Computed example of a mutant assay.
Amino acid sequence: MISNRKGILIGIVLLFLSVNATSQEKKSSVSESGLKTNKSKKRKKKVKLPEIDLSNWKVTIPAGSGKGGAISVALPEILDYATNETLKPYMYNDSTKGAISFYAYPTAATTANTKYSRSELREQMVPGNDNVNWTFKQGGTLKAKLSVDEVSRDKKGKYHKVIILQIHGRLTNDQKDLIQQKDNNAPPVLKIYWQNGKIRVKTKKLKYANVSAIGILHEEAWTDDDGFNFEQEVGFGKFQIEIKVTDGKMVVSLNKTEFAVYDDFNMKRWGVYENYFKAGNYFQSRDEGSFAKVSFYELQVKH
Protein backbone atom coordinates (compact mmCIF):
# COMPACT_ATOMS: atom_id res chain seq x y z
CA MET A 1 0.00 0.00 0.00
CA ILE A 2 2.81 2.32 0.95
CA SER A 3 4.68 1.29 -2.18
CA ASN A 4 1.65 2.14 -4.33
CA ARG A 5 1.35 5.56 -2.70
CA LYS A 6 5.01 6.23 -3.43
CA GLY A 7 4.41 5.36 -7.05
CA ILE A 8 1.47 7.72 -7.29
CA LEU A 9 3.49 10.49 -5.63
CA ILE A 10 6.39 9.98 -8.00
CA GLY A 11 3.95 10.10 -10.93
CA ILE A 12 2.49 13.40 -9.77
CA VAL A 13 5.96 14.90 -9.40
CA LEU A 14 6.97 13.76 -12.88
CA LEU A 15 3.72 15.17 -14.34
CA PHE A 16 4.36 18.53 -12.66
CA LEU A 17 7.90 18.67 -14.00
CA SER A 18 6.66 17.82 -17.50
CA VAL A 19 3.95 20.52 -17.47
CA ASN A 20 6.38 23.11 -16.10
CA ALA A 21 8.93 22.30 -18.82
CA THR A 22 6.24 22.60 -21.50
CA SER A 23 5.19 25.97 -20.05
CA GLN A 24 8.78 27.20 -20.15
CA GLU A 25 9.07 26.14 -23.80
CA LYS A 26 5.92 28.06 -24.64
CA LYS A 27 7.19 31.17 -22.89
CA SER A 28 10.45 30.84 -24.76
CA SER A 29 8.57 30.42 -28.02
CA VAL A 30 6.41 33.49 -27.33
CA SER A 31 9.49 35.48 -26.44
CA GLU A 32 11.25 34.47 -29.63
CA SER A 33 8.11 35.27 -31.63
CA GLY A 34 7.98 38.66 -29.97
CA LEU A 35 11.56 39.38 -30.94
CA LYS A 36 10.79 38.49 -34.54
CA THR A 37 7.80 40.81 -34.50
CA ASN A 38 9.89 43.67 -33.19
CA LYS A 39 12.50 43.03 -35.83
CA SER A 40 9.83 43.11 -38.53
CA LYS A 41 8.63 46.47 -37.25
CA LYS A 42 12.12 47.86 -37.62
CA ARG A 43 12.25 47.04 -41.33
CA LYS A 44 12.50 50.02 -43.61
CA LYS A 45 9.38 51.28 -45.33
CA LYS A 46 8.89 50.07 -48.86
CA VAL A 47 10.35 52.40 -51.46
CA LYS A 48 7.70 53.89 -53.76
CA LEU A 49 8.60 55.53 -57.06
CA PRO A 50 6.29 57.90 -58.97
CA GLU A 51 4.70 56.69 -62.18
CA ILE A 52 4.89 59.93 -64.16
CA ASP A 53 5.91 59.86 -67.81
CA LEU A 54 8.30 62.75 -68.46
CA SER A 55 8.74 62.08 -72.17
CA ASN A 56 6.77 65.18 -73.17
CA TRP A 57 8.14 67.57 -70.57
CA LYS A 58 11.20 69.67 -69.94
CA VAL A 59 12.08 71.16 -66.57
CA THR A 60 13.41 74.60 -65.70
CA ILE A 61 15.35 75.05 -62.45
CA PRO A 62 16.89 78.12 -60.76
CA ALA A 63 20.45 76.78 -60.93
CA GLY A 64 22.12 79.07 -63.48
CA SER A 65 23.52 82.54 -62.98
CA GLY A 66 21.79 85.89 -63.40
CA LYS A 67 18.42 86.93 -64.81
CA GLY A 68 17.48 84.76 -67.75
CA GLY A 69 20.07 82.21 -66.64
CA ALA A 70 17.76 79.49 -65.36
CA ILE A 71 18.67 76.01 -66.64
CA SER A 72 16.32 73.81 -68.68
CA VAL A 73 16.66 70.05 -69.09
CA ALA A 74 14.64 68.11 -71.66
CA LEU A 75 14.50 64.59 -73.13
CA PRO A 76 16.50 62.36 -72.83
CA GLU A 77 18.39 63.87 -69.85
CA ILE A 78 15.22 64.60 -67.87
CA LEU A 79 14.50 60.86 -67.61
CA ASP A 80 17.58 60.54 -65.39
CA TYR A 81 16.55 63.39 -63.07
CA ALA A 82 16.97 61.18 -59.99
CA THR A 83 20.71 60.83 -60.60
CA ASN A 84 21.36 64.14 -62.36
CA GLU A 85 23.55 66.15 -59.96
CA THR A 86 22.35 69.48 -61.41
CA LEU A 87 18.67 68.61 -61.03
CA LYS A 88 18.75 66.74 -57.72
CA PRO A 89 18.53 69.81 -55.42
CA TYR A 90 15.40 71.00 -57.24
CA MET A 91 13.70 67.91 -58.73
CA TYR A 92 13.92 64.56 -56.98
CA ASN A 93 12.02 61.45 -55.89
CA ASP A 94 10.34 61.42 -52.51
CA SER A 95 10.33 57.62 -52.19
CA THR A 96 8.27 57.64 -48.98
CA LYS A 97 5.46 59.46 -50.79
CA GLY A 98 5.87 57.94 -54.25
CA ALA A 99 6.10 61.41 -55.77
CA ILE A 100 8.35 63.73 -57.74
CA SER A 101 9.16 66.73 -55.57
CA PHE A 102 10.00 70.22 -56.85
CA TYR A 103 11.94 72.53 -54.55
CA ALA A 104 12.40 76.26 -55.13
CA TYR A 105 13.81 79.26 -53.30
CA PRO A 106 14.93 82.72 -54.44
CA THR A 107 18.10 82.66 -56.52
CA ALA A 108 19.68 84.97 -59.05
CA ALA A 109 18.80 82.52 -61.82
CA THR A 110 15.33 83.31 -63.15
CA THR A 111 13.71 83.06 -66.55
CA ALA A 112 13.71 86.11 -68.80
CA ASN A 113 10.26 87.50 -68.01
CA THR A 114 10.06 87.17 -64.23
CA LYS A 115 11.81 87.96 -60.96
CA TYR A 116 10.70 84.70 -59.32
CA SER A 117 12.42 81.31 -59.21
CA ARG A 118 10.87 78.12 -60.50
CA SER A 119 11.37 74.36 -60.52
CA GLU A 120 8.71 73.73 -63.10
CA LEU A 121 7.83 71.37 -65.94
CA ARG A 122 6.98 72.73 -69.39
CA GLU A 123 4.95 70.61 -71.80
CA GLN A 124 6.58 69.67 -75.10
CA MET A 125 4.26 67.94 -77.57
CA VAL A 126 7.34 67.01 -79.57
CA PRO A 127 10.17 66.18 -77.15
CA GLY A 128 12.90 68.79 -77.26
CA ASN A 129 10.86 71.19 -79.40
CA ASP A 130 9.14 74.32 -77.99
CA ASN A 131 7.71 75.26 -81.40
CA VAL A 132 4.94 72.63 -81.51
CA ASN A 133 2.04 73.55 -79.23
CA TRP A 134 -1.76 73.37 -79.15
CA THR A 135 -4.72 75.71 -79.56
CA PHE A 136 -8.04 75.85 -77.74
CA LYS A 137 -9.66 74.48 -80.89
CA GLN A 138 -7.46 71.40 -80.64
CA GLY A 139 -8.15 71.20 -76.91
CA GLY A 140 -6.30 69.57 -74.04
CA THR A 141 -6.82 67.95 -70.64
CA LEU A 142 -4.43 67.87 -67.69
CA LYS A 143 -5.01 65.72 -64.61
CA ALA A 144 -2.78 66.02 -61.56
CA LYS A 145 -2.64 64.67 -58.02
CA LEU A 146 -0.29 66.69 -55.86
CA SER A 147 0.45 68.22 -52.48
CA VAL A 148 2.19 71.33 -51.25
CA ASP A 149 4.39 69.87 -48.53
CA GLU A 150 6.34 72.81 -47.15
CA VAL A 151 6.10 76.59 -47.55
CA SER A 152 7.83 79.38 -45.67
CA ARG A 153 5.96 82.30 -44.13
CA ASP A 154 6.29 86.04 -44.67
CA LYS A 155 6.85 88.62 -41.92
CA LYS A 156 3.11 88.77 -41.25
CA GLY A 157 2.94 85.02 -40.68
CA LYS A 158 1.19 84.20 -43.95
CA TYR A 159 2.45 81.40 -46.16
CA HIS A 160 4.18 82.46 -49.35
CA LYS A 161 2.23 81.85 -52.56
CA VAL A 162 3.12 79.13 -55.06
CA ILE A 163 1.88 78.69 -58.63
CA ILE A 164 1.43 74.96 -59.12
CA LEU A 165 -0.16 74.73 -62.59
CA GLN A 166 -0.42 76.99 -65.65
CA ILE A 167 -1.53 77.26 -69.24
CA HIS A 168 0.86 79.58 -70.98
CA GLY A 169 0.20 81.35 -74.27
CA ARG A 170 2.72 81.43 -77.10
CA LEU A 171 3.06 83.36 -80.35
CA THR A 172 3.81 81.48 -83.52
CA ASN A 173 6.88 82.63 -85.41
CA ASP A 174 4.65 84.41 -87.93
CA GLN A 175 2.76 86.22 -85.15
CA LYS A 176 6.02 87.21 -83.49
CA ASP A 177 7.32 88.68 -86.74
CA LEU A 178 4.00 90.41 -87.45
CA ILE A 179 4.09 92.45 -84.22
CA GLN A 180 7.89 92.67 -84.27
CA GLN A 181 8.34 91.07 -80.86
CA LYS A 182 11.77 89.74 -79.91
CA ASP A 183 10.49 86.39 -78.60
CA ASN A 184 7.46 84.08 -78.77
CA ASN A 185 6.23 84.85 -75.28
CA ALA A 186 2.50 85.48 -74.75
CA PRO A 187 0.53 85.86 -71.49
CA PRO A 188 -0.50 82.87 -69.38
CA VAL A 189 -4.25 82.34 -69.74
CA LEU A 190 -4.35 80.29 -66.54
CA LYS A 191 -2.46 80.37 -63.24
CA ILE A 192 -3.44 78.09 -60.36
CA TYR A 193 -2.10 79.16 -56.96
CA TRP A 194 -1.70 77.44 -53.62
CA GLN A 195 -2.40 80.30 -51.22
CA ASN A 196 -2.61 79.83 -47.44
CA GLY A 197 -3.87 76.28 -47.83
CA LYS A 198 -6.48 77.05 -50.49
CA ILE A 199 -6.54 76.94 -54.29
CA ARG A 200 -6.97 80.16 -56.25
CA VAL A 201 -7.47 80.45 -60.01
CA LYS A 202 -6.59 83.48 -62.11
CA THR A 203 -7.12 83.91 -65.83
CA LYS A 204 -6.93 86.65 -68.46
CA LYS A 205 -9.51 88.99 -69.91
CA LEU A 206 -9.31 91.59 -72.66
CA LYS A 207 -8.99 95.24 -71.71
CA TYR A 208 -11.08 96.17 -74.75
CA ALA A 209 -13.56 93.68 -76.20
CA ASN A 210 -13.24 95.05 -79.75
CA VAL A 211 -9.45 94.93 -79.97
CA SER A 212 -8.21 94.18 -83.49
CA ALA A 213 -6.82 90.87 -84.74
CA ILE A 214 -3.30 92.30 -84.60
CA GLY A 215 -3.73 94.28 -81.38
CA ILE A 216 -4.86 91.13 -79.52
CA LEU A 217 -1.45 89.56 -80.07
CA HIS A 218 0.20 92.12 -77.81
CA GLU A 219 0.45 91.25 -74.12
CA GLU A 220 -0.79 94.75 -73.28
CA ALA A 221 -4.21 93.83 -74.72
CA TRP A 222 -4.84 91.54 -71.73
CA THR A 223 -5.22 91.98 -68.00
CA ASP A 224 -5.86 89.71 -65.01
CA ASP A 225 -9.39 88.85 -63.95
CA ASP A 226 -10.52 89.16 -60.32
CA GLY A 227 -9.66 85.53 -59.57
CA PHE A 228 -11.68 82.63 -58.20
CA ASN A 229 -11.21 80.87 -54.85
CA PHE A 230 -12.27 77.27 -54.33
CA GLU A 231 -14.06 76.74 -51.02
CA GLN A 232 -12.22 73.57 -50.00
CA GLU A 233 -9.11 73.89 -47.90
CA VAL A 234 -6.42 71.51 -49.13
CA GLY A 235 -3.76 72.52 -46.61
CA PHE A 236 -0.70 70.30 -46.87
CA GLY A 237 -2.64 67.20 -47.96
CA LYS A 238 -3.10 65.57 -51.36
CA PHE A 239 -5.59 67.03 -53.80
CA GLN A 240 -6.62 66.57 -57.42
CA ILE A 241 -6.93 69.18 -60.13
CA GLU A 242 -8.25 68.72 -63.64
CA ILE A 243 -8.00 71.33 -66.38
CA LYS A 244 -10.09 70.76 -69.49
CA VAL A 245 -9.84 73.04 -72.51
CA THR A 246 -12.11 72.98 -75.55
CA ASP A 247 -12.81 75.55 -78.26
CA GLY A 248 -13.78 78.77 -76.44
CA LYS A 249 -14.05 77.13 -73.02
CA MET A 250 -11.88 76.25 -70.02
CA VAL A 251 -12.95 74.28 -66.93
CA VAL A 252 -10.87 73.82 -63.77
CA SER A 253 -12.01 71.33 -61.11
CA LEU A 254 -10.78 70.62 -57.58
CA ASN A 255 -11.20 67.08 -56.24
CA LYS A 256 -14.00 66.53 -58.77
CA THR A 257 -16.42 68.45 -56.52
CA GLU A 258 -15.87 72.15 -57.29
CA PHE A 259 -15.65 73.75 -60.71
CA ALA A 260 -14.51 77.05 -62.19
CA VAL A 261 -15.95 77.52 -65.69
CA TYR A 262 -14.75 80.09 -68.23
CA ASP A 263 -16.73 80.23 -71.48
CA ASP A 264 -17.16 83.90 -72.36
CA PHE A 265 -15.84 85.94 -75.31
CA ASN A 266 -12.40 86.20 -73.70
CA MET A 267 -11.90 82.45 -74.05
CA LYS A 268 -13.23 82.50 -77.58
CA ARG A 269 -10.75 85.18 -78.61
CA TRP A 270 -7.92 83.45 -76.78
CA GLY A 271 -8.09 80.90 -79.59
CA VAL A 272 -5.64 83.07 -81.53
CA TYR A 273 -2.75 81.77 -79.40
CA GLU A 274 -0.88 78.52 -79.14
CA ASN A 275 -0.57 77.09 -75.62
CA TYR A 276 1.32 74.66 -73.40
CA PHE A 277 0.78 73.27 -69.90
CA LYS A 278 3.15 73.91 -67.00
CA ALA A 279 3.32 72.05 -63.69
CA GLY A 280 5.54 72.25 -60.63
CA ASN A 281 6.74 74.93 -58.23
CA TYR A 282 6.78 78.52 -59.48
CA PHE A 283 7.62 80.18 -56.18
CA GLN A 284 6.20 83.67 -55.64
CA SER A 285 8.61 85.23 -53.16
CA ARG A 286 12.00 86.93 -53.05
CA ASP A 287 12.11 87.02 -49.24
CA GLU A 288 15.40 85.94 -47.74
CA GLY A 289 15.22 82.37 -46.45
CA SER A 290 11.90 81.63 -48.17
CA PHE A 291 11.22 78.31 -49.94
CA ALA A 292 8.56 75.81 -51.02
CA LYS A 293 8.31 72.10 -51.80
CA VAL A 294 5.60 70.71 -54.09
CA SER A 295 5.11 66.98 -54.79
CA PHE A 296 3.33 65.41 -57.77
CA TYR A 297 1.94 61.88 -57.46
CA GLU A 298 0.18 61.80 -60.82
CA LEU A 299 0.45 63.98 -63.93
CA GLN A 300 -1.25 63.19 -67.23
CA VAL A 301 -1.94 65.25 -70.35
CA LYS A 302 -4.12 64.38 -73.34
CA HIS A 303 -4.85 66.22 -76.60
Rank of each mutant, 00 (worst) to 15 (best):
N4Q: 15
G7Y: 07
G7M: 12
G7D: 08
G11L: 14
V13E: 07
L15S: 13
L15M: 10
F16L: 15
L17S: 12
S18D: 07
S18Q: 11
S18C: 15
S18H: 05
V19M: 14
A21L: 15
T22Q: 15
T22W: 12
S23I: 15
Q24Y: 13
E25H: 12
S33I: 13
L35K: 15
T37M: 10
T37K: 09
N38F: 05
S40Y: 09
R43E: 06
K44M: 03
K46C: 07
L49E: 08
P50Q: 11
P50V: 07
E51H: 12
L54C: 13
L54I: 09
P62F: 13
A63I: 07
S65K: 15
K67M: 03
A70G: 14
I71C: 12
A74H: 13
L75I: 08
E77P: 09
I78Y: 01
L79H: 15
D80A: 14
Y81F: 05
A82S: 15
M91D: 05
M91A: 12
Y92G: 03
G98Q: 07
Y105E: 08
A109M: 01
T110N: 02
A112P: 02
N113K: 09
K115V: 02
Y116G: 03
G128H: 01
D130P: 08
N131F: 06
F136R: 06
K137Y: 01
K137C: 01
Q138F: 00
G139H: 00
T141I: 07
L142M: 14
K143R: 12
K143Y: 06
K145T: 05
S147Y: 02
E150D: 05
R153F: 03
R153E: 05
R153N: 09
K155A: 05
G157H: 05
G157P: 04
K158W: 08
Y159T: 04
I164R: 02
I167N: 11
H168N: 09
L171D: 07
T172E: 04
N173E: 14
K176I: 08
A186W: 05
Q195W: 08
G197N: 08
K198N: 10
I199K: 11
K202G: 10
K205V: 15
L206A: 06
Y208V: 15
N210P: 01
I214C: 00
I214R: 10
G215K: 12
I216T: 02
E219C: 04
W222V: 04
D225H: 06
D225V: 07
D226L: 08
G227F: 01
G227V: 03
F228V: 04
Q232P: 01
K238T: 01
I241S: 13
I241E: 08
I243M: 12
V245G: 10
D247W: 13
K249R: 13
S253W: 01
S253C: 09
F259T: 13
A260P: 00
A260E: 01
N266Y: 06
M267E: 07
M267A: 07
K268L: 04
F277Q: 05
Y282K: 03
R286P: 00
D287M: 13
G289I: 12
F291C: 04
S295K: 03
L299P: 06
K302A: 09
